[in-house]
C-alpha cells in the first residue's frame, strides 16, 4: 500500500478532497488509496435555505464573475484563466501505483470554486482492472444548491408529482418569479 498526501497552500484547511484510486472489484476504497487533500477556508457564505433553491441559485447567472468555477474547461490538462478574484493552487504530482495524479484547485471568496485534475494515469481508460475512482468526500459546502449556482438538476426521472418537491422545481420557481 502506498499513500501520499499533498496539501496545497490554500488558507485554512477545512475542506478535504479525497481522491482515491480503487482497483476493479477491490476491497475498501482506502486500501490502496493515495490521498490528495486540498485545504481551503470553508466559511459559509450561503444565505437562508428553506425551499432549497431560491436566492442565488435561481438567478441563473452562472456565467458572471460570481462563478469563476464555471470556466469552460472540458479537458483535464487545459489551463483555464482564473478571474482576478480567485487564486489557483497546484498540488504536487503524486506518484501513485497507477501513475501520476495532480490536481489544481481554484479558491474564490475563501471557497474552492473549481478542481482540475491536471494529470491522471493515462492507462486508466485502457486498463479494465483499474477503471474508476472512489470519491469518498466531495466538497459538501459547495454542494448546497444555494452556493452552487446551478442551472439545472440531473437525477432519476421524477414524476409530475415528484417534480413539485424537486430542486429543479425550486430553481424554476425562483426563475419564474
Amino acid at each position: 500500500m502506498r499513500r501520499a498526501i499533498v496539501t496545497t497552500t490554500a488558507t485554512a484547511a477545512g475542506v478535504v478532497l479525497l481522491l482515491s484510486l480503487k482497483p476493479h472489484g477491490g476491497q475498501s476504497a482506502s486500501a490502496q488509496a493515495p490521498v490528495i487533500s486540498s485545504g481551503s477556508d470553508t466559511s459559509s457564505t450561503s444565505g437562508t435555505s428553506d425551499t432549497g433553491g431560491t436566492g442565488s441559485a435561481g438567478n441563473g447567472d452562472a456565467s458572471s464573475t460570481t462563478a469563476p468555477s464555471a470556466a469552460p474547461s472540458g479537458k483535464a490538462g487545459g489551463s483555464s484563466s482564473s478571474t482576478s478574484k480567485s487564486s489557483s493552487y497546484t498540488g504536487q504530482a503524486v506518484d501513485t501505483r497507477y501513475g501520476p495524479v495532480q490536481v489544481r484547485i481554484d479558491v474564490s471568496g475563501g471557497k474552492i470554486s473549481k478542481i482540475d485534475v491536471l494529470q491522471y494515469p493515462d492507462g486508466m481508460q485502457r486498463d479494465q482492472d483499474i477503471n474508476s475512482y472512489a470519491l469518498p468526500v466531495l466538497n459538501q459546502e459547495a454542494l448546497s444548491a444555494q452556493s452552487a449556482q446551478i442551472d439545472a438538476v440531473s437525477g432519476a426521472t421524477y414524476t409530475s408529482d415528484g417534480y413539485t418537491q424537486s430542486l429543479q422545481s425550486a430553481l424554476d420557481q425562483a426563475g419564474l418569479k
Partner: peptide
C-alpha cells in the same frame, strides 16, 4: 455555457 448542472 458554461453551465453548472447539479446531480441530485
Amino acid at each position: 455555457g458554461p453551465w453548472r448542472i447539479g446531480v441530485a
